[in-house]
Amino acid sequence: MWNVPNCITLFRVILIPVFVVVYFLDWRWAHEAGAFVFWLAAITDWFDGYLARKLEQSTPFGAFLDPVADKLIVATALLMITHSYATLWITLPAVALLVREIYVSALREWMGSSGVRDAVKVSFIGKAKTTAQMLALIGLLSGLETFMGFPIYWVTLGYILLYIAAVLSIWSMIVYTKAAWPYMKGVAPK
């Protein structure tokens, strides 16, 4: 159970309180440092999955913990940006992303208990949503529009990517619901 991929996933969970504390430090670069901790957590998400496949160390515990770790850190980051920006234009897409995560998790759990979880496995849309969401959160958490006097527009890009992630999120929720609908109606495809 305590193989390298699972330890990396657990490290991601441990990073959550570190991320929050660093982000709210009374220090000039606290938001940028918090964004870096979030980025580190995002990278470990890719890395643990890669190692689990490469080293053939996939475990039931890892299969459970990995999506939980992802949802915990993303939900934390979404709450933090809604707090930091305190605007409807951040809160609306953040709520859409949170609602989708809860809905799809519940849908997958229900489908799994019905023995048909593969009907709602991760799709390309879901992966694109996750990429846009992670990049948006890094940009919005950092608060950077300039770096060493040069314009980089991280926040502006973060806004755009947050809306792209929200649209992809709703789209993927619809796709997953369509795939699960026959099972919900009790008419499983053959």
Rank of each mutant, 00 (worst) to 15 (best):
G139V: 05
E32D: 07
V20T: 12
E145Y: 02
V167T: 12
L51P: 04
F64P: 10
S105H: 09
A180D: 00
V104D: 09
I73Y: 14
L72D: 02
Q133G: 07
V167N: 08
L10E: 09
R12M: 07
V37W: 03
Y176V: 08
I138G: 09
I8H: 08
R12E: 08
Y50S: 07
A96R: 10
Y85E: 08
S142F: 11
E145P: 05
K190Y: 02
V4E: 07
A136L: 04
G158R: 05
W46L: 11
L137I: 02
F47N: 03
Y23L: 14
A94Y: 09
A41M: 03
D70E: 00
L161G: 06
V21G: 06
L92P: 06
I8M: 15
G62E: 02
V187M: 10
F150M: 01
Y159I: 12
M80Q: 07
P67D: 04
L98E: 04
W154Q: 11
H31N: 13
T76G: 13
L10T: 08
I90D: 05
V74Y: 14
A63R: 11
M1V: 06
G158D: 01
V22Q: 04
A179S: 14
R53Y: 03
F24W: 14
K185D: 07
V37D: 02
M1I: 09
P67C: 10
D66F: 04
R53E: 10
E145H: 10
G126R: 02
P93E: 02
L144V: 00
T59G: 04
C7V: 13
L135T: 07
F24C: 13
A33S: 12
A35V: 00
A165F: 04
G34Y: 06
S113N: 15
V21D: 10
A119Y: 08
S114P: 04
L25R: 13
P151V: 11
L55A: 05
I8P: 00
L79A: 15
I125L: 15
M1L: 10
A69D: 05
